[in-house]
Design a binder for these strands. Structure first.
Lengths: 145, 145
DNA sequence: CTCAATCCCAAGTAGTTTGGTTGGATTTCG
DNA sequence: CGAAATCCAACCAAACTACTTGGGATTGAG
């Protein structure tokens, strides 16, 4: 049930992009430095997000990445689905209908559906803007001390 | 974010034990047959559940396993925690406090906490009795046709 | 008393996934 | 031009998953 590092690093990078939204592109080097991971690895993750249309890139010097839409229009479900492959806890509840042969008589299915619905609700209800705002007010409070 | 086969097979076996609760022990052979998996593999899973105190065993001929408590007093969170090692989506939200060094300034932490709380709620609110009842009424309806 | 049914346990193993690294090609700003 | 940056594909070690194998120990039934 664990999230992989792809999800963790990638999502945090997206929050960084949300915080920088409107100020031009951000390089993978600076995003990676922020999290203390290698430039090359983060590049891979951001690459998936670009192919999925969530970020845009500009090549060459002074290039980098930016959100393709305003932070309030991107929810974390979309992001994690790209980074993790899917956010379903079990295949038989995915919308792509990879259901097992005896789904209708499976004693566990009602639980998986409930669990998945609960997860989906949180992931779709949270936008990058929410996360960026949370982060801003939180670091503000820390500075107040 | 996927559940492993341990969680899937093990939980379904527990539902089977819930359905048989009060009728004496059930052998791994019959539990395994029910799901079409090998006796030996299911034995491993049930072994963990026994060590965790969720089932009791009786050895020898006519032996087998039974729930150690009534189905309504066992929730699926307990079961999955045993089978999957933990049910946390990320270590920094576990109660065992394996928090990362910069937890208080992590931009993703509020999301992980919300997500985990939502998962925990579903898992602790569902008992084996709920699952067994669901299953019984569901197969009943199927027979009605 | 014996023997078959059953739990118990540890080790091995093939395949997949994770979490990266390496090496280089391409584009563009200054 | 050259440095800064994205792009891309291949490689790799370590861990994990999903089992199997090969036994030993216990106990009820005949």
């Amino acid at each position: 049930m664990k999230l992989s590092t792809r999800g963790r690093y990638g999502l945090k990078a997206m929050v960084d992009l949300a915080l920088a939204y409107g100020n031009g592109p951000v390089s993978t080097a600076s995003l990676a430095a922020q999290q203390g991971i290698s430039d090359a690895y983060l590049e891979q993750l951001i690459g998936s997000l670009r192919k999925a249309g969530l970020v845009t890139s500009s090549r060459g010097a002074q290039g980098g990445y930016a959100l393709s839409r305003p932070p309030e229009e991107i929810n974390v479900g979309e992001i994690l689905r790209v980074l993790e492959g899917s956010t379903t806890v079990i295949d038989c509840v995915s919308s792509e209908h990879v259901s097992c042969d005896n789904a209708c008589s499976c004693s566990a299915r009602p639980l998986w559906l409930k669990l998945q619905a609960s997860i989906n609700e949180v992931l779709s209800a949270t936008s990058l803007k929410d996360m960026a705002d949370d982060y801003r007010t939180q670091t503000e409070r820390t500075l107040d001390k």
